[in-house]
Each structure stands twice: as structure tokens, then as C-alpha cells.
Design a binder for these strands. Structure first.
Lengths: 338, 338
DNA sequence: ACAGTTTAGGAAACCGGTTTCTTAAACTCA
DNA sequence: TGAGTTTAAGAAACCGGTTTCCTAAACTGT
């Protein structure tokens, strides 16, 4: 049968309190006793039941990651998977498990009951597309630890991690200027999404810094996929003053851009520079290989995990905001200078 | 303070047994009583503690997905994320949560203690790259429910789901023959991986069925990435009897192949047909768009989740093997016939 | 009206740990 | 050596549900 703490207590001729204290490495138990009891645990193949521990400690050593698994854009799968990996890599070694929940199957209202109030997780990492001001307030009222994936502008009293999109936009555009491009466009992204606004703000900041006026005709927000990327770059080529470089909102857009330019026999990077946000696994394998701003989603997951664990263990000391610095991966598609 | 079952019992003037029976919708409680007690629960905002339920029921309503999150090949992220989505979509509605564990942080030996023996999950879905004969035997000894993601040939007494790779290989090759290609090569995949062997077996089965002798020079196993894809297709072009079509082990290989062919000015699909396993989100956006055998990893996750839940609920009745049928997505890269 | 059967609901043990409080024994030091 | 302190470990309550067994009341049918 299953070995319980009582069996160990009997075998060791001590009380279960003592055994429990050994399990928790309590200082009041001398090393000699600890050794002896641990010996017996090993002999009897004792494994404490986490079910019982959870109830007694009122903690389940699970942290939840609440995302929208049913998104239509599978292009993002890659990045969410990286986030999962990042979170797991920080909490796993601390003996916490990672519970993935889908806001879609939960329903906006029920996740509160199912995950938070009945204690199925000790803390929550939530995508900012799900988190609202109201939910944040509720969680704070319960002093339930949570971290937002992505900034929540205008929401008070929140722990959040993000990748510095603004900085990314700035660096990417700066890089194009450094390569000698003069007239730089920005393609893709939906205006209601903060991530677009931030990336775009970085782009405009760079233009300003280089004394270039912002030309709205060069900014082409849109839903993001390759077909649209192709279409939008063709529209840009129609302008009387066509751009000589484009910043793409993501790799799907960039693929479309490269394809359209190839069909038009416009040489990249010579006649047109192409730079993109995100570094999809295929980005190095396009022709020419795409210069990409690597938004490290694995590190984002790591940061979220760390922040949440800090918050769970010591609310006061924990950091509240953290921005991951993106990295420029310079490849062929912007190599105008040789 | 937190409302417990005792508070409800007191408020309703019944015993906690009765309240518990209401929670579990026991038939011995008349509807009138149920209604009355549920009313009170609602008023007091009672949410049962899952921590307590878990201990009492000896079940945690968590199922584990054990994979290798630290794989080096990020090309696979996409598919693993889909599997996660598939599993979640079946178990979520049944009020089970999904715990993702990384075999890498667990260690091969410790996952047994940490996940199985101490009851952190009620069942396990494991990638077949992790599962061994020995582990399967151990789990079976404990009669612990588990399902293998991917077939485990030669292992007795196992529940397994897979995508029919052999059938996929057959269908893809048949399709190329149907389009009028005569000499078909197979590029990529490592010979020690069952998935390669199965896909390749489907390919050879098609050749045989079409009365075409198998030419080992046309089978190019290898590590899979775009660079290698380019390289291998160029090697094939060197043959005195070069192939007129290639089956690619995955999209990365196919990208490399398309790139090399473009550089060599070999027209696809006219001079060379290109078909690939897997349907990466960018596959429709290559030039020409890639014909792909869609190996539906979301459905694989669904199947695994269903099988595991069946096994947890009724060991005897549950199915033991299930193969997902792949789907051909016919696009430009094999469209020789107009 | 009475024996036999349902029905509704309660008492208490249980799941397997943790924690608080207490105490006897051992240890300190003047 | 004796009062004061520290140390080691146990008893019992606790975490919050579930389950088994039992009983009193109500309901059958003759």
C-alpha cells in the first residue's frame, strides 16, 4: 500500500509532527534525528503526498499562465511557445508546476472562480489582451499575485513585463539610417494594438532624431499577413516619392514584402532595405536573409516567472516593471554598405 | 474571511455531509433541499476549496503534458503549441487543468516522483522521445494512466496517438505521380527517428505501387534545416538522372529547396515538383506556394486528451491506438497539370 | 394497523500532511 | 547545586472537503 507519514512515524518511533518537521527541514530537529528519519523514508520509499501538503499549507505550488489558445493567427504560436518555455524554466527549478489555461474555454468570468478563488494556482501570469482594469482591481483586492504579459498603460498598481517595443522600433529604424537609407516606411500592425503603437512610436522617434519629417503616407497599418505585406509594399512603390526601406511589423509582412519586391525585380538590399520585427525561425533563410529585431519572448517568460515568484515570496521587495531589451540581428536584407 | 463548507452547513442548519452531497449532486438529497442549500451558497459567495477536494478525492484534476521544452530546433515550437491547444481544448471543458512539464528541468528519474507518485497530475501525456519501455512498465505497474504522443513500436500495453506518417508519405508521393512527375526524391529526416522512417516508408510504398524501383541515391536523410535543404537538392541535380520532384521532410527543408531552385533558375512546378510534410503558417506564402501534407498536431492533442480522459474514467473501455489522417493541401508547387 | 421498504440527512472517520502549544530533559552559569 | 534557559519532540487541533454507516421518519401494500 501507499506509505504515509504515519508509517514513517511508526517505523522511526517518533510522532508524525517530528516527521513533518524533518520533511520541512525544521531547525528544531537535530541532524542526527533527521538523518535517521530520512534513512527510513528512503527504505520505505516514502513520497509525501502533495495533495495533503497543498491543503495543509494552503498552497498548491502551481502557477497559471492564462492566454488565448484559440487565437486565429497561428503565426504567433511560435512566440507563445517560447513564453511557456521561459516561464517553465524559472518556476520549474523552484518546484512549481506550470498550468496553462485558455481564457477561451474558461470564460472571462469563470477563470476567477476556477483558478483563483478555489486556489488551483498560487499566482497568475496573464496576457494583457485578457487582463482588464477591473480584473486587476479584483485580483489586487484579494491580494492575489499576478503579472501582466505586456504593459497595461493606465492601470494602477500592477506588475508587468514587456519587451521594449518602442526601443525596438527606434533601433531598427536607426539601423536603416545607419545603412544609408533615407526614406523609411513602416508596414503592418493594427492601430488599436498597443504593440503596434509602441513599435511605431520608436520608428517616429528615430525619424525625428534624424531630422526626417514624418510622412503619414509611409505608415501603413493593417492586419498582418504575407499577402497584405505584398500588397502594401506595392502601394508604397506607387508613391511619387517611394521609400527606399521598410520596417515590417512582423515576419509574415516581411515575407510578403520580399516576395513582391522579387516579383517586381527590385533588388534588396541595394534598391530597398527590408527590416522586420521578430525573428521567426525561417528569417535567416529568406533570400536575402532578413535583418530582424529579435523580441526575445523566452526572456519575457523568464522575466514574468521571476517577477511572479518574487511577488509570491515577498510582496514588498518585488520589482513591478521590467522591459526586455530587444536585439538587432543584422542580416542581408539591409546590408547596403559593404 | 473565507467561506467554508461549515459556514454553509451552519447557515442552512444541516450537517456538512449534506452540503458535500449537494456539491456532488448526490441522488439521496431531494431537489428542494439542493435548491435551498445552493441558494445559501450563492448568497455567501461560497467557492469550494479545490485543495480540500483534491485531498479527499485523491485526485487533483490536473493532467500533465511532459515534453522537451528545451529542444534546440525552434522550428517545432509551432507544432508543440498546437498540441497544447488541442489537449487543453478537450480537457478544459471537463474541468481539468493542463500542467506543462519539461523533462529537461525534471530529469528523467525525478518526474516519476514529482509528478506521478506524489499525485501532482492524474494522468500524463508524454512525447515518445521521452517515454521508454521501462518508464511505460513502471507506469503500468502503478496503473497510472498515460498516453504516448507518437507511436512506441515494440512496447506492449500502451495507449498511443499519432499522425499517420506512413499514409502521409504515401499520399504525398501519390499526388506527385498523379501530377505526372516520374522520378521522385525524398529529402531530409534522421534515420534514427521513427517519424522519418514512417514517412519514408509511405514514400517507398507509393513508388512500389507505381512500379518504380527504389533508388537509394534519391533518398537523402539528414538533419533538417533550410541550408541543408538547399544543399541536398543541389546534390540531387548533379545526378545523371536527376529527379523531377522532391518530397521534403518538413517546411524548413522545403524552403531551402525552393531557394536553391530559384537561384538555379529551375522552374517550380514546371521543371521540378516540390511537396512537403507539415503546413507551417508561411507555407502558403512561398513562391510558388508549397503543396503540403498537413499533419494536424492540434487534432493529435485532441486525440491524446480524449484517450487519456477515457482511460482515467474507464480504463477498460478506452481505445488504445489512434492515428490521425493527414490532409493534402494542394498548392502551386506541384501544379504541373493545369 | 403493522411489518417492510424507502428516503433524508447526520455523526464520525478519513484523506495526509502542518502547526501551535506544551513539556520533560538537558544544558548553562553563578 | 539550583534557578533559568535551551533543546527535542509529542499531543492535538487544523486545513476543508468526502464517504461510510446508521437511524429516524415517511412511505408502501395488505
Amino acid at each position: 500500500m501507499k506509505v504515509t507519514i504515519n508509517d514513517i512515524a511508526k517505523a522511526a518511533n517518533v510522532s508524525k509532527s517530528t516527521v513533518s518537521k524533518v520533511l520541512n527541514d525544521a531547525p528544531s530537529i537535530p541532524d542526527s534525528t533527521k538523518r535517521k528519519i530520512r534513512e527510513i523514508m528512503k527504505e520505505l520509499n516514502y513520497i509525501p503526498s502533495s495533495l495533503a501538503t497543498h491543503l495543509a499549507k494552503q498552497r498548491c505550488f502551481n502557477i497559471g499562465l492564462l492566454i488565448d489558445l484559440s487565437r486565429k493567427n497561428d503565426f504567433l504560436n511560435h512566440f507563445f511557445y517560447d513564453i511557456i518555455g521561459g516561464v517553465e524554466s524559472t518556476i520549474g527549478p523552484l518546484n512549481y508546476e506550470l498550468t496553462i489555461s485558455n481564457i477561451h474555454t474558461m470564460g472571462q468570468e469563470h477563470f476567477m472562480n476556477r483558478l483563483v478563488l478555489n486556489k488551483k494556482v498560487d499566482g497568475l501570469i496573464m496576457d494583457n489582451s485578457i487582463l482588464t482594469k477591473e480584473i486587476a482591481a479584483q485580483l489586487n483586492d484579494l491580494s492575489f499575485p499576478f503579472v501582466s504579459l505586456g504593459e497595461m498603460p493606465g492601470v494602477e498598481n500592477i506588475h508587468e513585463v514587456d519587451i521594449d517595443s518602442r526601443l525596438g522600433g527606434k533601433m531598427l529604424t536607426d539601423h536603416l539610417f545607419a545603412q544609408g537609407y533615407k526614406r523609411i516606411a513602416f508596414i503592418g500592425g493594427e492601430t488599436n494594438e498597443p504593440i503596434f503603437m509602441n513599435r511605431m512610436t520608436g520608428y517616429t522617434a528615430s525619424l525625428e532624431e534624424h531630422g526626417v519629417a514624418i510622412d503619414q503616407r509611409l505608415i501603413k497599418p493593417s492586419y498582418v499577413n504575407a499577402t497584405i505585406g505584398s500588397q502594401l509594399v506595392l502601394e508604397l512603390l506607387e508613391l511619387e516619392e517611394a521609400p527606399d526601406a521598410v520596417v515590417c511589423m512582423n515576419n509574415a509582412i516581411a515575407f510578403g514584402v520580399l516576395r513582391a519586391l522579387r516579383e517586381r525585380r527590385i533588388q534588396v538590399p541595394k534598391e530597398m532595405g527590408v527590416a522586420t520585427f521578430d525573428n521567426y525561425p525561417l528569417a535567416p533563410y529568406t533570400t536575402p536573409a532578413l535583418t530582424a529585431m529579435h523580441m526575445d519572448t523566452f526572456e519575457l517568460g523568464v522575466a514574468a516567472g521571476e517577477m511572479l515568484m518574487d511577488r509570491i515570496n515577498d510582496e514588498r521587495r518585488s520589482q513591478r516593471h521590467r522591459l526586455i531589451v530587444p536585439a538587432l540581428l543584422e542580416r542581408e536584407s539591409t546590408k547596403r554598405i559593404l
